[in-house]
């Protein structure tokens, strides 16, 4: 059993002059293709005891009080490329507050911190691979890449899967945001169909009336080689 090769042309280009920092941090050599060993075919397992009761609820897990902003749920399923659910895997998120400011000592944007918002969330997927966070919609913010470059509203996602080979860190965007098409980080992904996978549609069926809207973000991790038996003809 092994994992399918990663399609590196589907993922962002490591080096992209439009995203300035990548020009000094992207390796100049392509990654060396190696066979998968125990190190790649296994991975950490996180027990439920690692997760606090409010870790999935960014409306409540910082305080004091509730955060300012548009209340939303972000939910979806984690599956692999074969369509199998990825159960009980750790999903971590982080984001700016509704004004576009991160709770981080290196963020100096003039928008204020929100005392009611930390911006960190964690949960394990359920037996069917589902997850659901409650949060506020993050704000857009400017960053020093060009003279007037803005990040579209986004939530960072980290997912483990069942083995190191499936590790994925990405960002989720919001349907209808005109900044997506202008973002030099989004456009490191060459294929517009791949970008579409990062744009979460509004999901009214998952909204709670008089409480919060919802967006759906499904996540697909690397699949497994379909070869049924090792050594089969």
């Amino acid at each position: 059993m092994s994992f399918l090769p990663r399609d590196r042309d589907w993922h962002p280009r490591p080096y992209d002059p439009r995203y300035k920092t990548s020009t000094t941090r992207a390796p100049s050599q392509p990654p060396l293709r190696i066979g998968q060993t125990a190190s790649e075919l296994t991975g950490p397992i996180f027990p439920a005891s690692d997760i606090g009761p409010l870790d999935h609820d960014l409306l409540a897990n910082h305080g004091p009080g509730n955060p300012i902003g548009e209340r939303i749920a972000v939910h979806g399923r984690v599956t692999d490329e074969n369509g199998r659910a990825v159960p009980h895997t750790l999903v971590e998120i982080w984001q700016a507050n509704a004004g576009g400011r991160y709770r981080h000592r290196n963020d100096h944007y003039l928008a204020p911190l929100d005392p009611g918002f930390g911006g960190c969330g964690r949960m394990l997927t359920d037996a069917e691979g589902r997850y659901r966070f409650l949060t506020v919609k993050p704000g857009a913010y400017p960053w020093p890449n060009g003279p007037n470059t803005w990040r579209p509203a986004h939530i960072h996602f980290s997912v483990f899967g069942e083995a190191f080979a499936q590790r994925l860190v990405t960002q989720m965007y919001f349907e209808g945001d005109p900044l997506i098409a202008r973002c030099p980080i989004v456009s490191t992904i060459p294929d517009p169909r791949a970008i579409d996978l990062l744009i979460a549609p509004l999901d009214m069926d998952a909204a709670t009336p008089f409480d919060h809207l919802a967006y759906r973000f499904d996540i697909v991790l690397r699949g497994r080689d379909a070869t049924p038996f090792e050594g089969a003809p």
């Binding site: 981080h104 980080i185 996978l197 991790l221």
Partner: peptide
């Protein structure tokens, strides 16, 4: 189904993956 594409973790990764470093 195709794999979800990667994106950079950005400079504020600590908020999500090491909140104690970010003072969250």
């Amino acid at each position: 189904t195709k794999e979800t594409p990667s994106q950079t973790a950005g400079p504020f990764i600590h908020i999500g993956l090491a909140p104690e470093v970010a003072d969250v």
